[in-house]
Each structure stands twice: as structure tokens, then as C-alpha cells.
Amino acid sequence: MTQLPTSTEKKLGLVIDLDTCVGCHACVISCKGWNTNEYGAPLSDMDAYGGDPSGTFLNRVHTFEAKQEGCASQTIHFPKSCLHCEDAPCVPVCPTGASYKREEDGIVLVNEDKCMGCGLCAWACPYGARELDEMAGVMKKCTLCVDRIYNENLPEEDRIPSCVRTCPAGARHFGDFADPESNVSKLVAERGGMDLMPEQGTKPVNKYLPPRPKADVNGTQAPALEAQSEEITGFLGWLDRTLEKI
């Protein structure tokens, strides 16, 4: 099972728009709320009300700054969950066969009935997308909400990942990257969707849309408005002329 399928029918995944993400963490908590209740063991929180709280989350939002010499610095909120890599290094390393990539849609999952909690898959993932749940001792990761996207008990429109449904800014998009006509494929094409750490050779399915250029960093300034006159009399002249026209 730990062999990667040679190809998958669909390539389901997320597009995350770094130009739109405001860093609100809504996706983080919605993901926790859904997944602690559904797929596999709950996502535990150790020392939940104490001095060193630490819990399992399948999606976390970092904040970075980027600065060019001599320019204003930019702030970028950066959500990150499993990228459902095509060449997922986390899968073949798994000794138990618990980790696998689905043939039909490419979703990378952990079968908790087999996972022995060795942590090796998390070591193999460059993105920090896997977390071993401290209480249950099994590996947790983004399931791409596999129990939502096909869920016949949910209304059709809700058959999308929890994080996508909740994102207030609409910075997260879900779809099939194997279909060039899908919403996600188009977004990637239009906006130059990028891979994280391409040098790792993982071929991530999830793509990130880069921030658009910022006017205060590398944009041009609009030319100043043309004054009617430097004097107030000039303004009053303009006023009279304009009033005649209305």
C-alpha cells in the first residue's frame, strides 16, 4: 500500500491565494472542529488549560515578512496543510502501509488502523504537514475532508473541505487539478500558481497564488492632479464655470 499509485484519476487539492489571505485562522479552527469529530482519532490538546498547551492541528497559518533592500517590507499570511503531493515522500517510507495515496483522487491519507506512530512519514514530509497526535499516538494529517467532499449526508454545496467553506475572505479554493477547465486549474494558470519547495521533487498538488505587486513597494505613483490655479481665486473661477454647466 505504501507504493504510490502510478497515476490518479483526479488530482484533488487546494489553491491558496496569498494575495487574499488576511491571516484570520478561520480555516485552522474550522479544520480542527470538523476533523476532531470525524476521520479517525480526535485531535487532542495536551495541557489544554495549562502552562504548555500543545495540540494537533492539520492546518496552520504562518506569518512572514518579505523585504527588498531599500523598499517597504511586506507581510504575508501563509496557511499550510498537506499539499497531497503527486510524488509524496511520506507514503513510501511508511513501514506499516498505513500511509497511502488514493488512486481515484490523489488524496494522501493515513489508515489509523495500521499506523504504529513511528513518525517517519512526518520526517519525510518537507512541509510539516503531518503531526503525530500525542494522545492517540497515530499520525494525523489533512484528509482534504474526504468525509465531506463525497458525503451524501451533506447538501451538495457543502461537499467541499471545511476550511474552504469557512474562509471568510475566499482565499481557499478546492478542485481537480487534473481537469484543465476546473476553477483551480484556471486560477493557477491566470495567477501563476506556484509550488512550495519544488527542489524537494514532491510535485505538490496544492498550489499557492503569489501576492500581487504592491504599489508602495514596487509600483508607480499616479501623477499629481492638475491644479485649477494656485490661488483660491482660481478655484472660485472653476467653481463658477462648473456651476454654469450643471
Partner: peptide
């Protein structure tokens, strides 16, 4: 960090805030 975030085109990248102030497995 630039390749990890894909933000290298914007300049030198640095972490401003960790996603959680709490500890985590990673």
C-alpha cells in the same frame, strides 16, 4: 525559507509570527 514559501521574488523572507504561540509536534 524563500523556496519554502515561494516568496523569494518579494525579497528576503523572515518569519514574523509562528502559526501558534503554543508548542506543536513539528
Amino acid at each position: 525559507i524563500e523556496s519554502a514559501t515561494g516568496l523569494g521574488d518579494l525579497g528576503k523572507v523572515r518569519l514574523l509570527e509562528k502559526p501558534h504561540s503554543g508548542e506543536n509536534y513539528l
